[in-house]
Write a protein that binds this DNA or RNA. Structure first.
Lengths: 271, 271
DNA sequence: CTTGACTCTCCCCCCAAGGGAAGGTTTAGA
DNA sequence: TCTAAACCTTCCCTTGGGGGGAGAGTCAAG
């Protein structure tokens, strides 16, 4: 006969758990001193205790274990284990789905971090051609969200980069702008109202704007000053790439928004 | 401004949960009527509510969500998500391990069920050769458990069938028996004290004994009677296969124990 | 003005499997 | 005999809410 502490050491079950199992009628001590209430466990209970440990490691609930250990019918045990297996596997599927979402979220975030430049100067560079899905719109810029949503709904996981906007106006227009909301995609697909095509490579002058969209005009001024100073000829459409913006999930902090301005240029003879 | 009920309908969060989120300072109503205590949510909170729903679906605890949504530092968000991902993946690994154990257990049980014969008669059959790991022992039969344990510890997942015992005595001995505890295995392996070898095919007379080991002698009597009646010559070692016994985990019900007795025979000229 | 639908705050209990602490009794060894 | 360790019960705490109810106040439409 062991006392709780001894039995705990032998079986590896905590004293707390032993008391709980007693209360739940799962593992009842062989003898309980009527005076002191001390629990005493017979050696033969070690076996049952081990079975309980084994089944608890399989994360079976106490109720189930009680049914299993008290049943003499092996078939019933098998059924209980199978049903538990179903439960576990369902849970695994849930968690895997969560893990996939997390993976997706994190890789998205990482891509943004990787694209975050360390310098915010006007630069010249060439872009390569890319496949985009776009929706040409006229009106106020703030309408662009609808366009992005529509493209995102249609292309979902085929999206291969941050959303961007093409500006076809040669002058600034507030309320009647001509622009195209577009998102780089991996595959072409025919969707009503969405124009999928290749955006050509180009030589451009670029500047990454950090901060809220309200201050974009400052950055535009800088870029155009550079273009003029160099004597380049700006063409259209100009591009705005929303490296980091409000996003689908978090509004984020507008102070950290990153927007790349790309002005396509033809290098004049003076270049 | 929405009342709780309306906001609940809009966001899909239950009223109970909205109150909880308020209490936990996760989603604080835009306005609380000082007289009535009614909660009113501004449209702009829908966005935060959606983010909360999204993050809850990723099974983030409320405390974490609070930290994430209240932080302006994107890096911190990424860190939090990554740490959560670690947690989730650790949990998945745990559950997969549990699922493997369950799978193992169930397939084991199924094999036993499949091997359960529908008739318990003396029969003649031939067995095929099999690879076994065995420990030859002398003494009392009850010592065999140690042998099985040792083999099991060494061969674990290479076990390919139920344990068995070879009896080398030609007469019945209680206390000084000569026997070999062995288990069929998939692969050979050199282990001190364990003899791995091929058990040859043989022609035998067999009977599946159902019930506790104490009554095995009745079944032995039946088998030997059959052998003698047929005029066969029994040879040794005889085999006892523990199709269903106390097992590693459950003692089970001795009334359901299944033990196959195999007596190797040479068919005499009279057969 | 009434009435039915909403909402409020408290309150309690529930899930699973214990953990932790408080406060009191018993045992075992020196 | 004394003292420390072991043991007892009882109560509250954990996650993330769900469920229900009491009792009271409020809102909006007819």
């Amino acid at each position: 006969m062991f006392s709780v502490g001894e039995f705990s050491r032998v079986t590896g079950i905590t004293v707390k758990a032993l008391r709980l199992y007693h209360e739940q009628q799962l593992l009842i001590p062989s003898h309980i001193d009527p005076q002191t209430g001390y629990r005493y466990y017979h050696e033969s209970l070690i076996e049952r205790a081990r079975a309980i440990v084994y089944l608890r490691n399989l994360e079976l609930p106490i109720e189930q274990i009680k049914l299993i250990l008290n049943s003499t019918d092996d078939d019933h045990i098998l059924t209980a284990m199978q049903s538990h297996q179903q439960t576990i596997e369902a849970r695994i599927r849930e968690l895997c789905s969560v893990a996939r979402s997390l993976e997706h979220f994190i890789s998205q975030e990482r891509r943004v971090s990787a694209m975050t430049p360390t310098h915010f100067d006007v630069q010249e560079k060439s872009t390569s051609a890319m496949l985009i899905a776009g929706i040409r719109m006229k009106g106020h810029y703030s309408e662009c969200g609808k366009g992005f949503s529509k493209i995102f709904r249609s292309f979902g996981r085929f999206v291969s980069g941050p959303p961007m906007m093409l500006h076809y106006d040669t002058e600034y227009k507030e309320n009647d702008a001509d622009f195209e909301a577009c998102i780089p995609v991996k595959q072409s697909k025919t969707v009503e109202g969405i124009n999928v095509r290749e955006l050509p490579a180009m030589q451009c002058v670029t500047l990454v704007h950090k901060g809220p969209y309200e201050k974009l005009s400052d950055s535009y001024a800088k870029v155009f000053k550079y273009v003029n100073d160099k004597g380049y000829i700006a063409s259209s459409p100009t591009r705005e790439i929303y490296i980091k913006g409000p996003g689908m999930i978090f509004r984020g902090n507008p102070k950290n928004y990153l927007t790349e301005i790309q002005i396509p240029v033809q290098l004049s003879s003076a270049g």
